[in-house]
Amino acid sequence: MNILLSINEKSYAIEAASETPLLWAIRDIVGLTGTKFGCGVSQCGACSVLIDGNLIKSCGIPVSFAVGKEIFTIEGTSETLEFLREAWNEGNVPQCGYCQSGQLIAATSLLDKIHHPSDEDIDTAMSDNICRCGTYTRIKKAIHRAAALKNKSL
């Protein structure tokens, strides 16, 4: 069926089976490959996107769910995401980098909701995202740093 998606404030008219998971619609049909496939069963968070500001694992929802809503992916930009990128850069966080799209999106969702996250807040918000390289301590530090940068700018 014909589907109209809005991703990072840009419209995409695509042809897809309505039950196609949003992840594969974004990657294979729209052609934005920054959002990653990791498990296909909402266990690893590599495919995390924001839909109308809510954190969603895009492998677990049909593309039809996102119609008429605003999808935000790693290819996008927001004030929070830019502070996180700066902090990720400062902390030299990634190793292989593959999971980092999902980590950054999950962290964006966290900082959009909680301005001063505690370690426990970060543990709760980020434990759906697996990093096989094991960069968790750096991610945690970077989130604290990004929060500080963001709060300073307010």
Binding site: T33, F37, R85, N89, P94, G97, Y98, S101
Partner: peptide
């Protein structure tokens, strides 16, 4: 000394090209 990864920008913007991201016109999956 400490040098940051030369690929940091790509890693934080979803633009690093992994195998699974390869796209060729008319390719199948």
């Amino acid at each position: 000394k400490t040098l940051k990864s030369i690929d940091l920008k790509d890693f934080t913007h979803g633009t690093a090209g992994y195998g699974i991201d390869v796209r060729i016109p008319d390719m199948k999956f």
